[in-house]
């Protein structure tokens, strides 16, 4: 009973601190483009921002909500606040927290589990930030090399490189979901070349199609 009371108080504190931290961090993150724009007299263009944000939001707001609904129960209170702030949810924080729980042999819903999850995500975030910081220090002297014109094709094709790798990874997960969106998008771009420059718009029907097919297959228990 005492432990339950402690958990209640501990959770209350974590929610308060977590909310304050996230609000402050969101304000700071949003301020960065304005601060840089202020220095160079080039503030973000509101019209272009809204145009881009609508397209991005259509895809990534649902993804963000789904990630929140799926992963928050695995991470607990403190773990969720830190994870959704520091990112790399599926590739790092979830496996890390699960691993720590296995080591500590804690059970979901207990105060011990809450504490271990928070310790795990916090230490993972600190280490990741420090590794990246050390790397950035090394990267600064390399900047002139990275800006060499010979390397321009590499950085101009960074998006195809990403989607080649991700495509294989995700297509393999479910060929049943993949077939129709992939074939239809390819045919559309081959037959209507004007669509190629509108990839940001193509994402919406392609994502919608994949979601509907995925949902139908899931309903029929065929995934």
């Amino acid at each position: 009973m005492e432990k339950e009371k402690f958990l209640e108080e501990f959770n209350r504190q974590q929610h308060r601190l977590g909310r304050i931290m996230l609000i402050a961090a969101a304000v700071l993150l949003l301020a960065v483009p304005f601060l840089l724009g202020g220095i160079y007299g080039a503030l973000p263009d509101l019209k272009s921002f809204l145009n881009g944000f609508i397209k991005v939001g259509m895809v990534y707001i649902p993804v963000g909500i789904v990630e929140f609904l799926v992963y928050a129960p695995m991470l607990g209170n403190g773990g969720s606040y830190l994870t959704f702030l520091t990112g790399n949810v599926t590739n790092l924080k979830i496996p890390c927290a699960m691993n720590a729980r296995d080591i500590a042999r804690t059970e979901v819903g207990t105060v011990e589990n809450e504490i271990i999850s928070t310790l795990s995500v916090a230490s993972s975030s600190i280490v990741t930030m420090l590794v990246i910081f050390a790397g950035v220090l090394l990267l600064v002297p390399l900047t002139p090399v990275l800006e060499n014109p010979v390397l321009t094709p590499a950085f101009d094709t960074v998006v195809p490189a990403l989607f080649g790798a991700l495509g294989l990874k995700y297509f393999r997960k479910s060929m049943k979901i993949t077939a129709i969106p992939l074939i239809s998008m390819t045919l559309l771009c081959v037959l209507v070349p004007g669509a190629i420059s509108q990839t940001s718009i193509l994402l919406i029907p392609a994502g919608g199609m994949a979601l509907v097919i995925g949902y139908v297959l899931w309903k029929k228990n065929k995934l």
């Binding site: 495509g167 997960k173 992939l182 994402l203 097919i213």
Partner: peptide, 13 residues
């Protein structure tokens, strides 16, 4: 599914 849709659009392009 969402990522499959994204990748399909890019690979098609």
């Amino acid at each position: 599914a969402m990522f499959i849709g994204l990748c399909s659009a890019y690979i098609g392009s």
